Computed example of a mutant assay.
Amino acid sequence: MIELDDKDRALVRALAKDATQSAGALGRELGLSQPACWRRIKRLREAGIFRETRLEVDAAALGFGVTVFLGVKLATKGRVSLEDFERAVGAIPEVQTVEHVLGLYDYRLRVVARDISDFERVLRRRIMTLPGLGNVEANVLLSEERRPGPI
């Protein structure tokens, strides 16, 4: 882990808010030259602070109006069943995130669908056929108030 100073932390916050900003614009905002800002960005990237740059897509604007969080409890435990489950669930395009968690469930899935009947189709034909699947609990997203941001 690298040591971060105040400028590094400000840079992380600025890029977490808008990763499309140029090093020159960020430098002006933070009181750094463009080359100094670029060197800091490069150092943070090489240290693993920035994992990737991604475009945030509005699922509803693309016709996916329903988001459902599934709590999944596997019927059997073991390395083979975990790997089989993860490989199979990773192949379902409607499953946006797969989180291996500790607690009541083994996995937490974020699933998008066009509407409730589309979600039912995904649930019946794809999710309920996953290897090692035990119990499933669904929670439909009503609204999302806080988006992930800088730590």
Rank of each mutant, 00 (worst) to 15 (best):
M1G: 15
L4G: 10
D5Y: 06
K7H: 05
R9K: 15
A10P: 14
L11M: 08
L11D: 02
V12T: 11
V12A: 08
A14D: 01
L15N: 01
Q21E: 14
Q21P: 03
A23H: 07
R28N: 13
S33F: 08
W38C: 03
W38H: 12
R40M: 06
G48H: 03
F50H: 01
R51Q: 11
V57D: 07
A61C: 04
L62D: 06
G63Q: 11
F64C: 05
T67L: 07
V68Y: 02
G71Q: 07
G71W: 02
S81H: 11
L82H: 15
L82M: 15
F85A: 01
R87N: 03
A91E: 13
I92V: 15
P93G: 13
E94S: 09
H100L: 15
L102C: 12
D106C: 03
R108M: 13
R108C: 09
F119Y: 09
F119W: 00
R121D: 10
R121G: 07
R124E: 04
R124K: 09
R126S: 13
R126E: 10
T129W: 01
G134A: 08
N135R: 14
V136A: 11
V136C: 04
E137S: 12
E137K: 04
V140A: 13
S143W: 08
E144C: 07
E144V: 04
E145H: 14
R146C: 10
